[in-house]
């Protein structure tokens, strides 16, 4: 019996399941800590030390350093927690959308508008 359930593929979409929740635990735990303004300040003062304290993997650390949204997702980041990291950077969800789709922010916002037609 296989331990892995057959996963279906939805283009451009991942399902945050147990495998990703395990892989991303340290990264998500760090991002969860950003609910606190003091923790956000501590991260901003010394990013590397803050990542050390949460035990991020090399891939997670590289994605944090590179502000690489798709890399953060691939490293097990969950968008609800990553949104708190984006907040530190002053990025909104249109910035995140643009970064993930490779569009300019203006083009991404135009796409959102067009969905209402």
């Amino acid at each position: 019996m296989s331990m892995v359930r057959q996963k279906r593929t939805i283009p451009g979409t991942s399902i945050f399941d147990g495998a990703l929740a395990r892989k991303g635990y340290a990264l998500n735990k760090m991002c969860f800590s950003f609910n606190s303004a003091d923790n956000r300040d501590a991260f901003s003062r010394d990013e590397d030390a803050y990542c050390d304290a949460y035990g991020l993997s090399d891939a997670q650390r590289a994605a944090i350093r590179g502000r690489d949204v798709l890399g953060l997702l691939a490293a097990g980041g969950n968008v609800y927690y990553l949104a708190k990291f984006a907040g530190i950077l002053g990025l909104d969800v249109q910035d995140l959308g643009a970064a993930q789709t490779g569009m300019s922010k203006e083009a991404f916002k135009a796409m959102l508008m067009a969905a209402g037609d």
């Binding site: 939805i10 283009p11 997702l73 968008v79 959308g97 789709t101």
Partner: peptide, 8 residues
């Protein structure tokens, strides 16, 4: 959808 290449 906030995350992934299909964001938006």
């Amino acid at each position: 959808q906030l995350d992934g290449e299909r964001a938006g």
